[in-house]
């Protein structure tokens, strides 16, 4: 502490502290302290009015792991094993992986196309990709209801197409399915993947493509050996930008999944609002954070943050 205070005497350190203090206060007030509160309540309990009783027990975490204290699991009387929450966690994880994979698959060709477009067109194309973000997130998700519902746009189109061919048509049940949630997620998070991928692709020196061709690589092999590896930093950055929010989001699944597709985000939201069990909600939040952290650490350990290649 004295060393810290002594270092403050140095003008540069003082200026540095001045520069970071607004964001430091912001982070402490709105991230660190709430996080500590969440950690403390996650090991607490709940009184009949839905307030947190402070204490120290892991029973919220045990409940998440499937240990059921009070209600019967089918025919088995409590305490018993209930996989309800584990299923939700697993579903969230799978959906986040599926979303990320699909966003890469859809976004990469688009980012590639924009990066290879004539320089004068690129900004316009990027602008078009970003235009949907001008509309509120929730409204954009609601728009998918219009598209996917039984009497919606998509069923209407398929119906009239089949009608022309004189084929019978029974409207598809697309809304309130895991598929609907997946489509909504991909739609919402696509720009966050395209932008970093575009940045990576656009940065590649075009003489490298010529060098590969000159050395006998056809366009496919040039792509696999040069373009793809050099654009990996963008894919890695995009994956982090997409995977983490998708793990925690609840709006898309709430609107497009109805009661059918409950994700860990919905679980947390309901504990705080409907079930009035903030202690259990806190435990679920901490678990979500830890899971996301583990996946991210594992991912970045394997692929890096991409900066080694990007800076080369």
């Amino acid at each position: 502490m004295t060393a810290f205070l002594r270092s403050l005497r140095d003008k540069d350190n003082l200026r540095g502290l001045g520069l970071i203090s607004p964001s430091l206060l912001w982070m402490i007030g709105l991230l660190i302290i709430p996080l500590i509160v969440v950690m403390i309540s996650s090991v607490g309990g709940r009184d009949p009015d839905g307030n947190v009783i402070f204490g120290f027990s892991f029973h919220n975490y045990l409940r998440l792991a499937g240990y059921n204290y009070d209600t019967p699991c089918g025919d088995v009387p409590p305490p018993c094993f209930d996989d309800l929450y584990l299923t939700i966690l697993w579903r969230s994880l799978v959906l986040a992986f599926q979303t990320t994979a699909l966003v890469i698959a859809v976004g990469y060709p688009l980012a590639y196309f924009v990066a290879r477009a004539p320089a004068g067109h690129r900004n316009l194309l990027l602008f078009l990709i970003l235009v949907p973000l001008w509309t509120n997130f929730v409204i954009r998700v609601y728009a998918w209801i219009m598209i996917l519902r039984t009497q919606g746009v998509l069923n209407g189109l398929i119906g009239s197409a089949l009608g022309v061919l004189n084929l019978p048509f029974k409207p598809l049940e697309m809304l309130y399915t895991p598929g609907a949630v997946l489509v909504g997620m991909v739609y919402e998070f696509l720009p966050f993947m395209i932008l970093p991928m575009y940045t990576s692709l656009e940065k590649i020196d075009s003489s490298l493509f010529e060098a590969a061709a000159d050395l006998g690589a056809n366009p496919l092999r040039t792509f696999l050996r040069v373009t793809l590896p050099l654009s990996m930093p963008g894919v890695v950055a995009g994956t982090i930008l997409v995977f983490i929010p998708v793990m925690g989001t609840f709006i898309v699944s709430d609107i497009l999944g109805g009661r059918q597709v409950i994700l860990v985000g919905n679980l947390i939201q309901r504990q705080f609002l409907d079930a009035r069990d903030p202690a259990f909600g806190s435990a679920a939040s901490i678990l979500l954070m830890v899971m996301t952290l583990i996946v991210t650490i594992f991912y970045t350990r394997t692929f890096g943050f991409g900066e080694e290649i990007a800076s080369a």
């Binding site: 060098a211 000159d214 040069v226 290649i309």
Partner: peptide
Amino acid sequence: VNTVFQNYALFPH
């Protein structure tokens, strides 16, 4: 034919 480029164009990765 093969080319030696002005900026070398070595593959950085």
